[in-house]
């Protein structure tokens, strides 16, 4: 069963098209994450679903019913904003209760729902406090509670964690994931943090310049990126892309090396390999070799920037005893970990 369906969704601001024909089916209970670089139209898409922005063309349906022309409050959605949008002049209880403002419920029922939401979020003891006396994470919880009490069919989140510090962000991320498991609600979540996207999503939607680049599970978009943009956007540090020319099962790189690939395609290509798939090896006999320019120790591993003579790649060395800057290393990899993209279109070649 589908909860949310977007069909050929388009949004123009004046003459600029910021959302360019988005199509997406979101299943009931699914956690969808929209991710992409700044300005790619994530928020605009979310705001169209919420009814805060008019749709230029295309349709949005919730539960099979087209809602393009419905008021936000009639859409059965709730939204959590980046800067929380909780009101400084109201207590936590009143802020959460704002979500029930127009719902005709008995006073006792409202109180019950507010307290239930607060309890789930661990905010029960703060109900009478003003936001000024709350931490950032607690404020964001209030905003989530305000969305929860509405009992919406679809939750919309627009970068809800980006105002929090890194540690709190990790913690809230886990809590949102638990909350989703508990409420089994449909969630559309916008972020430009790809780690957040990977950890939270059932399916990730990667956007660029108003278009969807790929939709898939975190594993799919990571291991089988549809194009070079997705390949470099997902994963940190980004996938190494080396220009070359393919012919007869070989790719001749611009650096001069030749690498066997499992495809018969020909022409200019980009050869992709993730830093963690590229490991230092004995310099002789390796298909790739170069000089280490920078070594970044991360603890469990060491990121090695290796100059291949014209192109630089990042490889992963061991946490202890990694080659030092200046050393010449060979780089080994599993041929199955190679990705190949058309140099002109960026599309993956399989």
């Amino acid at each position: 069963m589908t909860t949310l369906t977007l069909r050929d969704l388009v949004k123009d601001f004046g003459r600029t098209r910021v959302v360019d024909g988005i199509g997406l089916d979101v299943a009931a209970g699914e956690f969808i994450v929209l991710v992409g670089p700044s300005g790619c139209g994530k928020s605009t898409t979310l705001r169209m679903i919420a009814g805060l922005e008019e749709v230029t063309a295309g349709t949005i349906a919730i539960g099979g019913r087209v809602i393009n022309d419905l008021e936000p409050k009639d859409r059965d959605i709730a939204m959590v904003f980046q800067n929380y949008a909780i009101y400084p002049h109201l207590t936590v209880r009143q802020n959460i209760g704002f979500g029930l403002y127009t719902q005709r419920l008995a006073r006792a029922e409202k109180a019950r729902r507010i307290e239930e939401a607060a309890a789930i979020l661990g905010m029960g003891e703060f109900l009478e406090r003003k936001p000024a006396a709350l931490s950032g994470g607690q404020r964001q919880r209030v905003a989530i509670g305000r969305a929860m009490v509405r009992n919406p069919r679809v939750f919309l989140f627009d970068e809800p964690l980006s105002n929090l510090d890194a540690q709190l962000r990790t913690q809230m991320r886990i809590e949102i994931k638990k909350l989703h498991a508990r409420l089994a609600s449909t969630i559309v979540y916008v972020t430009h943090d790809q780690v957040e996207a990977m950890t939270l999503a059932d399916r990730i939607v990667i956007m660029k310049e108003g278009r969807i680049q790929q939709v898939g599970s975190p594993a799919e978009v990571y291991h089988a990126p549809a194009n070079s943009f997705v390949a470099t956007f997902i994963g940190a540090p980004a996938m190494n892309l080396l220009p070359g020319t393919a012919a007869g099962g070989w790719v001749r790189l611009a650096t001069g090396s030749e690498i066997a690939v499992a495809t018969g395609a020909g022409g200019p290509v980009l050869l992709g390999i993730r830093p963690e798939d590229l490991r230092p090896a004995a310099a002789g006999g390796a298909a790739l070799a170069g000089r280490v320019t920078v070594a970044e120790p991360l603890g469990p591993g060491t990121l090695l920037h290796v100059d291949l003579g014209g192109a630089e790649v990042i490889a992963t060395g061991p946490g202890r005893g990694a080659p030092a800057p200046g050393a010449t290393v060979g780089l080994a990899f599993d041929p199955a970990a190679l990705h190949l993209f058309d140099a002109a279109t960026g599309a993956a070649i399989r």
Partner: peptide, 14 residues
């Protein structure tokens, strides 16, 4: 006044 404040209320149906 940030628009978010007003939009959140709009979604809540005010």
């Amino acid at each position: 006044v940030p628009d978010d404040f007003l939009e959140a209320a709009r979604i809540d149906g005010l």
